[in-house]
């Protein structure tokens, strides 16, 4: 019986039979359908996924004409920081534009949080102006809302992660609400300065990393920015497949934010004024690539069907079916990309 080379979600290689692969695809799509209360993939879509997963080629690609654009998060942290290539941020951007043929790029600081950036905003605006003089592709400026940074000892507010285990629920909720006010102010300030310095767009990255209050603060910041600059492009990238209810009683446009899955998250992002939505589906490191891929594509398909704005799926380490390893394996990355575009109908990655 023939076996196919594949991987687990932690990147370790394995071989599985056709039956095992088909079973994992089916269980994966059913898990997404069950959790998100969305349709599972059809048999023909599962067959297509099986074909993508079992092709003997080391890498695969979309058919000519089906290419999609790419946007980045933590853009200038990838080559100089994660890969350890000794280059400055502007060289990293030029490398992306002229060697990698990236469609867009993101200028980002190593202190990748809006709160930290306000103190060095003059340096960031100068960097943006310099980069814009040398590049043609659209350049985003991005950072994370990181609501947790407003808690003691980093900030002025009590830490809800410490209050909650003590069952101080109302104090924990009040602390999150207070942090939101600070975060909104910082996000609007930094984004405004960077937009006025020439950024083609602003990226709110890893939204929801501190739970539903983190999401609400970001949505409100987007709303303010959109009113202030009607033409501003804003990418709204999530941190997880459902919004973690650290507060639980926060609403936007009449919708409770906690527990929203990608096809619901995109609607609140749209309503706030976001122009690109970054869907995130978590990779389970114990499951196979096939299981993770079927699950991811199921969530993404529901999200793109619901969306009125472009959906750029996060396909990096540990999300979008990509194995959780520092340098994701190209066999998995290219297969995930192809499946997300051809079956999930992703507008970008």
């Amino acid at each position: 019986m023939s076996e196919f080379y594949t991987r687990y979600g932690d990147g370790s290689p394995t071989r599985v039979s056709a039956d095992e692969m088909r079973r994992d695809l089916e269980v994966g799509t059913n898990d997404a359908a069950d959790r998100g209360k969305i349709p599972a993939l059809s048999q023909s879509e599962l067959d297509h996924l099986f074909d993508i997963c079992t092709r003997p080629d080391k890498t695969v690609s979309v058919e000519r004409g089906n290419e999609v654009v790419v946007t980045f998060d933590a853009g200038t942290l990838k080559l100089p920081i994660r890969a350890g290539v000794p280059m400055d941020r502007s060289s990293a951007i030029l490398t992306h534009e002229r060697a990698f043929c990236s469609d867009t790029m993101e200028l980002a600081h190593v202190d990748y949080s809006y709160k930290q950036l306000k103190a060095i905003i003059h340096e960031e605006t100068a960097a943006m102006e310099h980069v814009q003089l040398n590049t043609i592709i659209p350049i985003f400026y991005g950072a994370m809302p990181n609501l947790g940074l407003y808690t003691k000892p980093d900030g002025p507010i009590e830490n809800w992660s410490e209050l909650l285990p003590l069952a101080k629920i109302s104090e924990a909720k009040a602390a999150q609400e207070e942090a939101m006010e600070h975060a909104i102010k910082d996000m609007v300030y930094v984004a405004s300065r960077m937009y006025e310095a020439g950024a083609d767009g602003i990226n709110f990255d890893t939204v929801g990393a501190s739970g539903d209050a983190d999401v609400l603060a970001s949505l409100k910041a987007v709303e303010i920015l959109k009113n202030k600059y009607p033409d501003i492009a804003i990418e709204f990238g999530m941190s997880g497949e459902f919004i973690l209810g650290m507060h639980g009683d926060l609403f936007f446009d009449g919708k409770r934010l906690a527990g929203l899955y990608p096809h619901q998250q995109v609607k609140v992002a749209e309503k706030a004024g976001a122009t690109i939505f970054g869907a995130v589906i978590n990779t389970n490191s114990s499951r196979t690539f096939a299981w993770n891929l079927a699950r991811t594509v199921t969530f993404v398909k529901a999200c793109t069907e619901a969306a009125s704005i472009p959906v750029h799926v996060n396909v990096g380490m540990g999300v979008g079916a990509i194995p959780n390893s520092n340098t994701p394996a190209v066999d998995a990355v290219s297969r995930a990309d192809k499946a997300l575009v051809e079956i999930g109908k992703a507008d970008g990655l």
Binding site: P165, A167, I169, D212, L244, G245, G248
Partner: peptide, 15 residues
Amino acid sequence: GRGEVFLPQLIMSSE
């Protein structure tokens, strides 16, 4: 784990 209840409820239920 499925996002159907939230952290405050989880804490309250353990209380």
